[in-house]
Design a protein around this nucleic acid. Sequence first.
DNA 1: TAGATTGTTAATCGATTAACAATC
DNA 2: TAGATTGTTAATCGATTAACAATC
Lengths: 213, 213
Amino acid sequence: LKAIKIPEKTITRLSIYLRCMDELLEEGIESISSHELAERFGLNSAQVRKDLAYFGQFGVRGIGYYVKNLRQALEKILGLSREWEVALVGLGNLGTALLTYRGFSQRGFRIEAIFDRDPEKVGHNYNGLVVQSMNELIDTVQKKSIRIAMMAVPPVSAQGVADRLVQAGILGILNFAPTQINVPKNVKVKNVDLAVELRTLSFFLVRTLKELV
Amino acid sequence: LKAIKIPEKTITRLSIYLRCMDELLEEGIESISSHELAERFGLNSAQVRKDLAYFGQFGVRGIGYYVKNLRQALEKILGLSREWEVALVGLGNLGTALLTYRGFSQRGFRIEAIFDRDPEKVGHNYNGLVVQSMNELIDTVQKKSIRIAMMAVPPVSAQGVADRLVQAGILGILNFAPTQINVPKNVKVKNVDLAVELRTLSFFLVRTLKELV
DNA sequence: TAGATTGTTAATCGATTAACAATC
DNA sequence: TAGATTGTTAATCGATTAACAATC
């Protein structure tokens, strides 16, 4: 078993392919070639085949991919049968937003613990889940064997919170705090900064706007 | 004027550099070399210099970068003096979350119009901003010269909404709907799918977990 | 068998990193 | 001037795309 490094982008695209399969299923389409797939959904056919090739052979030469089959394969690769418990740290505007967003549980990510440093918020009950103080973080995360955390705390607190999460055994962090955090290399961090996304968007817009004038 | 293509990632990193400058300013540090910068914030010194080189020369050989100076330069490059009006389409869980999130206005993005197809929601007032029906979208966006939109609608509605936005003159879309949308190539779309982020995270976690056992 | 499409190797492209002449 | 660090060119790395032999 040699370790082939699978690009993160490939994994992200697998989710896209899964979505495509769902759409095709709804239309009653039974099989599709990588070329048609690319055409329909704005993908690149070679890339589709390459991405899948990391995990095995799912197509039929001369035919393409059986939609049901590929769907199933993608589900298995992405591990969608498993559910994940998630800890949410920080109940400000964004944290509350994440808490009420249904997209997570719909796709197998259940928020099973909530932490906030504000004593006013601690003890509040959301759908049967009680907000806990930061002191309870390590204990609760360990007890519930939670492996994934979403961090929606102010940037100054981010590193401290991350340290505790790591200590508690968290292995993946979705970081909404607009700051870099340092963690051991076996822990995976994904930064999401919506304002930076908007900034990047607006940067390129300026050029388009100038062209319009 | 030849068109040098600036990578999107470079722009994203400029925001990071700006953050670093703010931290350094607070500590009272006046100048810093790209090397120190890289060391401190987990960057690559060559990349820092390369990224900046797209826009000019902001350092002093033998010294490094004057923090105040570079901060100012980054602000200018990113166009942070300008404020942007943003339209929000879709007031579900996520949409409401985006509406209440203060991070946007803090960084110069003001939500100036809200649209939802649900008649129950139309007419509601949020901080003086009234939710409008989808029929009013084109007119309002045009009247207010809004150029950026955040789309937090169900996937089935996404393409239709995008079409209207484009028609209204929107040039940048932050798309939270888990579906690909097709727009003219002068319009920039950035997809944000939080559940896919979690999925990608969890995919790599499975491997770490296996190693732990 | 002929036609089509995969899986995979090879070519290309772009982004990251290294190296170094220019210069403060 | 000597030391340091930039700005920039060149080398490396990784990801995307093209090409094609294998095969349904």
